[in-house]
Amino acid sequence: MEKAPPNYPSAVNLISISDLCLSHSLCVSGLAAAFWAARSIYYIDLISDPFRTLRHFFVIQAPIVILVFSRFRRDPEQCSYLKAMIRGVLGTFAGALVNALVAIALGAPVGLNYLPKTVYWSLLISSLTFVPAACVFGASWKDWRRLFAHTKPVDLVDYMICVPAHGAIVGSWFGAWPMPLDWERPWQEWPICVSYGTMVGYVAGMLLSFGLTVVKSEKQHLKKD
């Protein structure tokens, strides 16, 4: 098996632990803020108005993710902050298309009345999974494969991209399970429970990646000492 030896510009390795902490908490608090705002400002939630709530989540979360991750771009010499952001925006839509197709293959309802909800759900999950990688790696096929096919994160930023993304995907997969049950609860509708799964998985992934970050950086400190 070929192993891509990490060949990063030195700048990336110099990301401080506090920087990563801040980024983690920004991403999680973005979702929390979206939740709070939806509830107390717009008086909507996923169950009563999934379409507007998902749009709201996306509008708040996507810019945060793009802004945070564009700072960690892999090739700062060739790629400006702005360019990384543009990559992120493009990645959002490409990722949404892929996610929507996969969701439909898995059985997500198709139809005009579901279309807006599907679109915003896939935009949201795309901003949690694709966008970070798009901002950081751009179109670097090798890095994408390393993270999403081999699941071999090397440095701390890798963890921060890879673990929450997998969390969000696995969470969505499990989130679909209650959908066929005949409990006749409103939250069983597409895409409400799947969205809950996505966000729970994402937050869990973030916490895990944060834990790993702390452990790893302590090890590095020990090595340095």
Binding site: V102, A105, L106, G107, P180, D182
Partner: peptide, 22 residues
């Protein structure tokens, strides 16, 4: 175990098949 999953067994099988394809 659940009557709902039996009713939609085709969709469940398809869900698993699609997962395996992914």
């Amino acid at each position: 175990l659940s009557n709902s999953y039996i009713l939609e067994e085709g969709k469940v099988a398809n869900y698993l098949l699609a997962t395996s394809c992914i």
